[in-house]
Design a protein around this nucleic acid. Structure first.
Lengths: 238, 238
DNA sequence: AAGTGGTCTAGACCACATT
DNA sequence: ATGTGGTCTAGACCACTTC
């Protein structure tokens, strides 16, 4: 474990469990350096990560303080933070997939632009409905270039594509660009999600990237409006 | 301007305008150090910011490369990134507010928890409909503690509360926690937004924080489903 | 073996807040 | 004047990739 991670974890735990309460001052950088036997840059790095995650604020000339958050809200904040597929997000529940389409096609033009590939390339065209404990939660329409994700099988698609990519192909999923909006469900969507036509759905468009920067996935997910919530901490620039 | 910002801006511009194309290698850290006359930590910091914003990827042992993004998508990425109020987000359009409620009340219990204040404190209770070029876009229901934001006037509420906070009170708005979900519009919401009852709306709940970590705002915004979109770049932790 | 980025140091000096 | 965090340096050493 890296030194900055040790320091980050230590203070994160003490903030979440209330050892450091809302508004309370944390030790100054110089003390952290001494306590953990690290240099200033390393202590600063750990604190900067806590700022980024919304736990603390730093004020030049004054000190470092726990963000003004109630214990109940602190719990929620501690649980938030990550980006994962549906399987990993529901580790305690049974996640299953019904595969409605799974074929290889020439890439549609708009998808070619998002994946930044030539319009003559082939992609998987995958349509799945994912259930949590048997209840349909989301329709996922995914395109993936076959040259990047070779030999994808129906079995992979039925269980977890991310698992295949990371543990069979040994590729690292690194980041994603996501757009979130809402609209009315079409009749087909409503039927699949057990909603009525024109009920609200959340539409999440995502472009996924591997650690080498290559786009490997362009997906559109249609979520039941009553089963989707997206949380984030935002920081103003400057 | 800080050195790391100069380097960040330089490469950001060259990536957005195509001087460095998708997949292309950027200079190695050592070269950046020499070119800009900075140390390794400073060059690294600038590149780490570009990673965070989704422009590049770094691969240990190999080098640094532009993310695999088409020129069209690069434009979109370059425009994204920030958190601002409605006024600032629509600088070219006329943003107006209809104030439906503006009173001072004892804080509701759930709001007291989000703002982490005592249940006997007073807060502004503000209900506004905000229009862009005359079209109703969003209903904002905002609570703010009067002790943190004193002397808020109807005039401020009619124009821009953020402007009052930042330029009259000289407080710095630093961060926010946001939750995004969708649901059906109530009859009242539909009337205000010129929708039909049960049409989709996007519900954005936000807790805003000042630079000293104090929560100054708890708001719920109801957006027309066809006029709201939220974009973000996410990174996987490890 | 050579080349790349990642972590970390032990300081120096600066900017802002408080006394 | 003192104390705080912010920027930056000039390295050392490590981890991973490629040859």
């Amino acid at each position: 474990m890296k030194k900055f991670q040790i320091i980050y974890n230590d203070f994160r735990n003490k903030i979440v469990n209330g050892t450091y309460a809302a508004g309370q001052a944390l030790p100054k950088e110089a003390d952290v350096c001494e306590t953990f036997g690290v240099s200033k840059m390393t202590a600063k790095r750990a604190f900067d990560m806590l700022v980024s995650d919304g736990f603390i604020v730093k004020q030049r000339g004054k000190g470092t303080f726990v963000q003004d958050i109630s214990p109940a809200e602190m719990e929620i904040l501690a649980e938030a933070n990550q980006f994962l597929g549906t399987t990993a997000l529901n580790p305690k529940k049974s996640v299953t997939s019904s595969v409605l389409h799974f074929e290889t096609i020439s890439v549609p033009l708009d998808v070619a632009d998002k994946l930044n590939i030539s319009p003559i390339e082939q992609v998987y065209d995958i349509l799945r409905v994912r259930q949590v404990d048997g209840m349909p939660m989301v329709i996922e329409h995914t395109y993936m270039p076959i040259k990047t994700i070779p030999d994808l099988s129906l079995k992979n698609v039925e269980s977890s594509i991310y698992n295949y990519i990371e543990h069979k192909l040994n590729l690292k999923i690194a980041s994603a660009r996501r757009t979130i909006s809402a609209r009315k469900a079409t009749g087909e969507e409503a039927a699949l999600l057990m909603l009525r036509k024109n009920d609200p759905v959340v539409e999440v468009k995502q472009i996924g990237y591997l650690a080498d920067g290559v786009a490997f996935e362009n997906s559109t997910s249609i979520h039941r409006y009553d089963e989707y919530e997206f949380e984030i901490v935002l920081h103003r620039k400057n």
